[in-house]
Design a protein around this nucleic acid. Structure first.
Lengths: 202, 202
DNA sequence: TAATTGCACATACGCCGTGTATGTCAAATT
DNA sequence: AATTTGACATACACGGCGTATGTGCAATTA
């Protein structure tokens, strides 16, 4: 093992803390997670935590940022697979719904995050998710596939509907709610389509 | 003043605690609100609280239940004003968006509630909101105005979109976001309409 | 290369808040 | 009138967060 530079150690410590916090928050919830236990599991103490993140809330922000970026990247990648831009948008929304089945994302991003950090639409990471949807929508509007809607407003609502559906799917034991949710999502989203039956598959 | 019976005193105490908690949770947030301070402001102690509600979480549940019922009643009333059922549905959604501008509802129902009590779709009160939307949708489907969609799924998504839009409106200082959000909401909701141009106003 | 500065942590302390166990007193029951 | 029930108050113990302080190693500077 080569000896690590100071900067490398720093980043490694941050990563260890974020990973441990991610697991602890997901398991116990934000309020239920103890900083002592959390840091001990990472082989550190609370001193490191307050040094790097300021307070418990700062740590949550870092965890949320990471999770949110992972979500955005994954959803965007799925959306890109489709040559049809409209199907790409739908797939992106469906991807959010599926991603939110992950207990970590449910608990940390969808439940504790908003309560502790405030409205998600103000998070930098959420803006990245939103921006992805907005650019997709922008293109669809330019192509005339989607009505000339307020792109930001539409993107926020679409994302919101998807995330809310995700909570429903997550809370339900029934297996086919996922399909029901995604179907309903497609129906709703079709409200954005320009009134041309040929572009909307029956 | 007539002397109060025991049952009357009990209900009055509960009401005082719920009112005080409502104010405290709205102002300080759930985690930031102290039970000692909260009960003292109501002229009581924590003893009364734990006796009636079991724990802090139980108190929040009671507050949320009350707020949620108020929301549902108000939104439903607004929806009923319209003779046109479709416009009633849209108005109901718009009413949710406006209601959520209330800081109490934002903080307690939309932010802290889900984090502490879990997914809103599992709350008894939320089910009442949902049921209202579902019955409206059911009627619209029966009339052929709305596609034969999965009513529960559609209702959940519609409600989710509205509440999410509400958070956006609430977090934004800009005055016209409310109009932008409601417009986008109408666009989205129109995706549920049967494909008959005559029923959807241009 | 020796002295010094700075930074990444660890340690120790105080404060506050929750939950529970116990006590008290009035009202309802008999 | 005696007893019981229940609605609340009081007292205590436990744990967690934030901060102030200490420590040792790495990066500078001469």
């Amino acid at each position: 093992m080569a000896r690590r530079s100071r900067a490398e150690m720093l980043e490694e410590t941050r990563a260890k803390l974020i990973d441990a916090a991610r697991a602890a928050f997901a398991e116990k919830g934000y309020a239920g997670a103890s900083m002592d236990e959390l840091t001990a599991r990472a082989g550190l103490t609370r001193g490191a935590l307050y040094h790097h993140f300021g307070d418990k809330r700062g740590l949550l922000a870092a965890v949320v940022d990471r999770l949110d970026n992972e979500m955005a990247a994954r959803a965007h990648e799925i959306g890109q697979r489709h040559t049809n831009a409209w199907e790409g948008l739908l797939a992106e929304g469906g991807a959010y719904i599926e991603l939110a089945r992950d207990p970590e994302i449910q608990r940390i991003v969808l439940l504790d995050g908003p309560a502790v950090l405030g409205d998600p639409s103000q998070w930098p990471s959420q803006n990245r998710c939103l921006l992805a949807t907005m650019t997709t929508l922008e293109a669809l509007v330019a192509e005339g596939i989607v009505k000339p809607v307020d792109v930001e407003a539409a993107a926020r609502l679409v994302n919101g509907a998807a995330l809310n559906a995700a909570l429903w799917v997550a809370a339900s034991d029934d297996a086919d709610v996922l399909a029901r949710a995604t179907d309903a999502f497609r129906q709703l989203a079709s409200g954005l389509l320009a009134l041309d039956p040929s572009t909307s598959p029956s």
